[in-house]
Simulated assay, not measured.
Amino acid sequence: MKFSYKKLWKLLIDKGINKKTLCEMSGVSATSIAKLGNDGNVNTEILLKICTALKCDVGDIMEIVSDDEEK
């Protein structure tokens, strides 16, 4: 099982927000956004900052998927 942030990228597209703007809105570093792009592990504080900036719930930006489902 692993985390997938595909929902975050879809939400950004729907809202017309790019990654740089997300960094500015949330105060999250570009490095952390890059980790999310690779479905990497990030601190829950990062997720909270993103959710606060986008006015959404954590379930709106991430989900847990099985390794088989991701392939």
Rank of each mutant, 00 (worst) to 15 (best):
D39L: 03
M1H: 08
N38S: 11
D60Y: 08
C56G: 11
S26R: 11
L47T: 01
K7Q: 10
T21W: 00
N43C: 11
K15E: 12
A53G: 09
S4A: 09
N43V: 04
L22I: 03
I50N: 02
V65I: 15
T52M: 05
I13V: 10
L8E: 05
S26D: 09
V65Y: 00
T44V: 13
M25V: 06
I13P: 00
K49M: 04
C51S: 02
T21Y: 01
N43E: 14
S26K: 10
A53D: 07
K19A: 15
D14E: 15
L48P: 00
L36P: 01
I17G: 06
L12E: 01
N43K: 13
I61H: 01
L36I: 12
L54N: 10
D39F: 06
L11E: 13
D67V: 07
A53R: 14
K55C: 07
K7H: 07
I61Y: 01
G27K: 04
K7E: 11
W9Y: 12
V42E: 02
K55R: 14
D57L: 11
G40T: 01
L47R: 01
N43F: 03
C56Y: 03
E70D: 09
L22T: 04
N18M: 06
E45M: 07
D57I: 04
K2N: 05
S66G: 11
K10M: 08
D60T: 10
I46R: 01
N18R: 08
I50D: 00
N43G: 08
S29H: 04
T31N: 13
D57G: 04
N38L: 13
Y5N: 02
C56L: 10
V28R: 10
G16H: 09
W9E: 03
M1L: 06
K15M: 09
